[in-house]
């Protein structure tokens, strides 16, 4: 467990947005390790469709910021082959929905090579991709697919909810010798927060952060819902003392920090934008009941996207997107 208030913020920090934090992470790792290069669609001169790679091209040029054809299977496969042969590619998959095009490379090659070959292949590849609804991008550009990846053996999945987590996890992903997917919720790119300036600041995979301490109910929230849950918690502070945990890493998952919290509060809400059925919520809840069933004082609640695709029309999108208000209602049901 890492409590932000206790450790990470003792170091020198600066205020960055999530977008800036991710870009800074990549800049530092590109400077640190010549084997690292970026590969994806329109990440060079264009700066990335959501402007995350931004000006990196100016510093590192076309050799290290590689614009690809629109060939998700091709460049995901090339990154896999490159990772197995001595380099450390960082892939930008423009929207996570496009994983469908590249899934063969992800599930049958990237995820399996090390294991199938009895450990004879290295796979130091990072895949950054955007998730989430909220900007009217409709069903094929708004998906939240991290449960697929976290479910699939051989892949790590992280999903930052704050600028500090975004930087620390991106750097940890690039330094990892295993495939790591970094799921960036597109609605929080402008969210600001304090980020450590130390170039060796990383957040180890599998460490959750207690973003707010509380005694009455535990909210495990991811991505956009971390900030919204913190706001909700502040708004309810007179009535209920809410603990908010950002797991940050979905696989591996810091079960211990979540379980410790539930042992204390006896109540759990899991808030994650992925579709409700068969996913991230279910996994977290299953682990809590394995370890802390007898500490529970109320039924566990889930906040997520009902099992629909993301509709285009703003009123429809707002209907299905999970929000801090849903977290408030869930807390209300169990306290």
């Amino acid at each position: 467990m890492t409590a932000l208030a206790d450790t990470e913020l003792e170091t020198e920090t600066e205020e960055l947005t999530v977008r800036e934090a991710i870009r800074q992470a990549m800049r530092e790792e590109l400077r640190r390790d010549e084997d690292v290069f970026l590969i994806g669609e329109d990440i060079g001169v264009f700066g990335g469709v959501l402007e995350v790679t931004g000006d990196l091209y100016e510093e590192f040029g076309p050799e290290r910021i590689k614009d690809t054809p629109i060939s998700e299977a091709g460049f995901m496969g090339a990154a896999t082959g490159a990772a197995a042969t001595g380099t450390r590619p960082v892939v930008e998959l423009m929207f996570s929905d496009f994983a469908g095009v590249a899934m063969e490379q992800i599930m049958n090659q990237m995820a399996k090579m090390r294991y199938m070959f009895g450990g004879k292949a290295e796979m130091p590849v990072t895949v950054r991709t955007t998730e989430g609804g909220g900007m009217g991008a409709a069903s094929q550009h708004s998906g939240t697919i991290h449960s697929w990846i976290a479910h699939f053996p051989g892949l790590h999945a992280v999903a930052p909810g704050t600028p500090a987590a975004a930087k620390g996890l991106t750097k940890a992903a690039i330094r990892s010798d295993d495939p790591v997917f970094v799921f960036e919720n597109k609605m929080i790119y402008e969210q600001k927060g304090q980020v450590p300036t130390d170039e060796d600041f990383t957040i180890p995979l599998g460490e959750a952060a207690v973003e707010r301490e509380g005694e009455d109910v535990t909210v495990v929230a991811t991505q956009r819902l971390v900030g919204e849950s913190l706001q909700t918690a502040e708004g309810m502070a007179d009535d209920v003392d809410v603990e908010v945990i950002d797991p940050r890493s979905l696989y591996p998952l810091d079960t211990e920090t979540i379980v410790e919290s539930v042992r204390k509060t006896g109540r759990l809400i899991v808030a994650d934008e992925s579709p409700l059925s068969y996913g991230t919520h279910a996994e977290i809840i299953a682990r809590v009941q394995e370890e802390a069933f007898f500490s529970l004082d109320a039924p566990i609640q889930r906040v997520g996207t009902p099992d629909t695709h993301m509709p285009f029309s703003p009123p429809l999108e707002q209907e299905v997107l999970p929000t801090g208000e849903d977290v408030r209602n869930a807390i209300g049901r169990v306290t």
Partner: peptide, 28 residues
């Protein structure tokens, strides 16, 4: 497979070798 010997693996997926070769060529 024996990556150290330059053998990037037999492959159970038809057509999966060429992307792997493109990736190795990219490293080279």
């Amino acid at each position: 497979a024996d990556v150290d010997e330059g053998m990037l693996g037999a492959n159970g997926i038809v057509g999966a070798g060429p992307p792997m070769a493109t990736g190795a060529a990219l490293s080279i």
